[in-house]
């Protein structure tokens, strides 16, 4: 027999504790329950799809770093001479953080939003839009960061890590993944078909190829260099490369600020979108 409370139930007591906090209408302080849902659901994820995210940058490193690298020799980066493999490794790490976060924040989020109607179910509870947004973005971040850390272990094993500051690539990857997840989920919230998601993939390929991943952007005219420097992947690559080579300067602070702003902006817009879609 089902019990029926006439007094204040646990769920109501919890909601009442939160009701007077600022922003109570959009955030109940329970993003972790959304994150936990994903941690339980992950075992149904196709392990092969998950694994390709780890393998892809390793394949690029071997083919380009050691294959093409044999023809290129060394590269001069801001006064330091490094092997070609060491030149592209931080860039591949940045893009694996990006790809992992975006894969989750685009395709998976779209599926949950439109096919599973998962956010409709979540917003029918005492969760707010920001709980859902933050929980989902945090999960996409976990995936992006996992790829990046996995790749960091690989380049460590290849002996490409030369500076102690390379350890800081881990928190940097977390930040980059969060920012890409936040922006990715923002974009997804405006999309109404799977075809539109392909535009994201379509935009990613040139960004991956031309953001200083495989060659310095000094080969471009100055105006084009500035355009590329404004793009998030170049920012991520420049940050990772600086950390790998031990260049801790003002540029690093700028990159961190850049991703902090993207993160906050993406989280805020996603929250507003989920609120408009499911709670207005």
């Amino acid at each position: 027999m089902i019990m029926q409370a006439t007094a204040v139930t646990a769920a109501v007591a919890i909601a009442e504790r939160h009701a007077h906090r600022p922003g109570a209408g959009i955030y109940a302080g329970r993003a972790r329950t959304v994150l936990a849902r994903n941690a339980v659901a992950v075992r149904t994820t196709n392990a092969f799809v998950f694994a390709t995210g780890f393998i892809e940058p390793v394949l690029f490193l071997v083919a380009f770093g050691y294959g093409i690298g044999g023809l290129v020799g060394t590269v001069d980066v801001a006064g330091q001479v490094v092997s070609y493999a060491a030149f592209i490794a931080p860039a591949l790490l940045a893009s694996s953080a990006m790809n992992g976060a975006l894969m989750d924040a685009t395709y998976n989020v779209f599926f949950k939003m439109h096919h599973q109607r998962l956010y409709q179910a979540m917003t029918a509870t005492s969760l707010g839009a920001m709980d859902v947004a933050l929980g989902e973005i945090a999960w996409a971040m976990v995936r992006g960061a996992a790829y990046a850390v996995g790749f960091l272990v690989v380049i460590g094993a290849f002996g490409l890590v030369v500076s102690w500051s390379a350890v800081l690539m881990v928190p940097a990857a977390v930040l980059v993944a969060f920012a890409f997840a936040a922006i990715g989920m923002t974009l997804t919230s405006y999309m109404s078909s799977f075809q539109q998601l392909n535009w994201v993939s379509f935009a990613l390929l040139p960004m991956f190829l031309f953001s200083g991943t495989f060659f310095p952007i000094t080969v471009y005219p100055v105006w084009l260099q500035h355009v590329i420097e404004a793009l998030p992947l170049w920012q991520a690559i420049a940050m990772m490369r600086g950390l790998m080579l031990g260049e801790l300067d003002g540029g690093l602070a700028f990159h961190v600020g850049y991703f902090a702003v993207l993160s906050v902006l993406g989280l805020w817009i996603t929250t507003r979108r989920l609120d408009a879609l499911f709670l207005r």
Partner: peptide
């Protein structure tokens, strides 16, 4: 999971 969304222990 749904109960957790309500914050239930």
């Amino acid at each position: 999971t749904y109960g957790r969304y309500f914050g239930l222990p």
